[in-house]
Amino acid sequence: MLNKNTPYIGRGPGPEKKYRFLLAFILLILVLSAEANLITAAAKGGTEFPLTVTDQFAREVTLKRMPRRIVSVSPANTEILFALGLGAERRIVGVTNWCDYPPEVRFIEKVGDLYPLNLEKIISLRPDLVVASDINGKEDVDRLTELGVTVATVNPTTLRSSLEAIELLGRLTGKTPQAGKLVKRIQQGITQIERRGKILTANRGKPLKVLVILGGAYEGQPIWTTGPGTFLDELITLTGGENIGHQLNLRWAQMSMEHVLKCNPDVILTESDGEELYRNKLWAFLSAVQKRQVYTVDINVFSRPGPRLLEAMEGLSLLMEKSE
């Protein structure tokens, strides 16, 4: 899921390598100048501290002051926090080694893996808020809390819970209006693609069958796909498709080639190069390959609610309109 050379939809063409340093420098300047606006920004946030909220795992989280040193231990949370403008205010002091977006995360200290968490590294950053998620595991979160660190957890599995996660993080960081705006934009996007999706389905008579291949399809490798309960699955349904992995009862699971052939998807979303599938004799049976409707996408985008998700939804919707 981390192939870097894949052209993504949802993210514009990446900055040319030689300009990256310059870009980074400009960002750094921006970040530094934003520091001055920190207090005013917080005041505009509208959240009153001290604050007690219930997070998405029904844990009570109390913040005495507005958090200034936030550690994010999931890539999705990192994207949300950046989208809320906390990166520019230099309030994010630690992210995981897997956090790769937005590009500014490169300047933020790394705290290691998603699971198990490197508690020592996290604590050494003296965070006043750690934003964890379902992927970090209950044990480590509890242990961190036990050691006196304030931890808020989110559980962004479905679209709905992801939007709630954004709102929650907004409240916790004093960014309620920004979070509200982001949620609203995503909601509008959803309404839009849903409308377009309905039209597509009505025109076609039935939804297009879609196969998602996580990580990409390679000769002799198992096919990992997404099942029900993820927002990738939900987005496919909304845009007028039918995820053939929906019948699986796991959120992420392996699918046999036999099942793929039986379902005969019309559209394939993969992270590897589509050309490889076009050359493969077995895949040639599928109508998606025959109609040359194998698209390369960055699946990561679909699992992280943030501004990128909006563009990704739009892109997916366009792909579905383009396909037949």
Binding site: N97, V111, G112, D113, P116, N118, E120, K121
Partner: peptide, 9 residues
């Protein structure tokens, strides 16, 4: 194990 690839373990 906890120092060579720190912060990864």
């Amino acid at each position: 194990g906890r120092t060579v690839f720190s912060p990864l373990e």
